[in-house]
Amino acid sequence: MGCLQSTGRRHVPGHEDPIILASQTAFTVSEVEALFELYKSISSSVIDDGLISKEEFQLALFKNRKKENLFANRVFDLFDVKRKGVIDFGDFVRSLNVFHPNAPQEDKIDFSFKLYDLDSTGYIERQEVKQMLIALLCESEMKLADETVEMILDKTFLEADVDQDGKIDKSEWHNFVIKNPSLLKIMTLPYLRDITTTFPSFVFNSEVDEIAT
């Protein structure tokens, strides 16, 4: 009988080889393994089934499973790449990869476009932006008169919607973000540079012979 405790990683649904995931992302093998430590804690926080449910996702983000929010739902849906209603490890790593400080800016622009294209029509429509503004106002308890919201929308669409058809297409979004780079701030997580020090226990559970740096 061995005294080392097995993590049972091979039995985690959707668990993909860290070497392959590292080859497809900006993460090193060690960082993928450190992310697995984070993944394990999130995916076992409500039901220990090796998958992240929406409830577990929200609990990890807000420490509160009851918080229903338009943005949190949208981010979850984008992480749920295979549209299964849950996030597996491959989804988790590939989605977080977009938030890596070294990820290509184009990937960040694409992800942010999908985030704001709430109904996935390929356009960010004015009514979607208004819906998100109203959600933000509710969340922050900030009060803005409807007329002010409309003025903000007018100004935004005047700048972003170059052909003035009432919706922002991908190319218009790209140009708008290039002119307003602060819009991509939410798309970078500096924490992702330090995940091996945040989750050092990965070294005890590593499945690769030599830890890549």
């Binding site: 984070l38 999130i42 990890a60 983000l61 807000f62 420490k63 918080k67 929010n69 338009l70 943005f71 949190a72 981010v75 977080l96 938030f99 985030l115 704001y116 932006v129 998100m132 503004l133 959600a135 933000l136 969340e139 922050s140 007329e147 003025m151 903000i152 929308l153 007018d154 100004k155 935004t156 005047l158 700048e159 972003a160 708008f176 307003n180 602060s182 819009l183 701030k185 939410i186 997580l189 924490y191 995940i195 945040t198």
Partner: peptide, 29 residues
């Protein structure tokens, strides 16, 4: 009504202030 007011923030700058779009919660223990 002055849609060109230089002080007016754009809608996406405002939306980006949502705490629900900040994924750093994953890393804060």
């Amino acid at each position: 009504k002055s849609p060109d007011s230089p002080t007016l923030i754009n809608a996406f700058q405002l939306i980006g202030m949502s705490s629900c779009l900040d994924l750093s919660g994953f890393f804060e223990k």
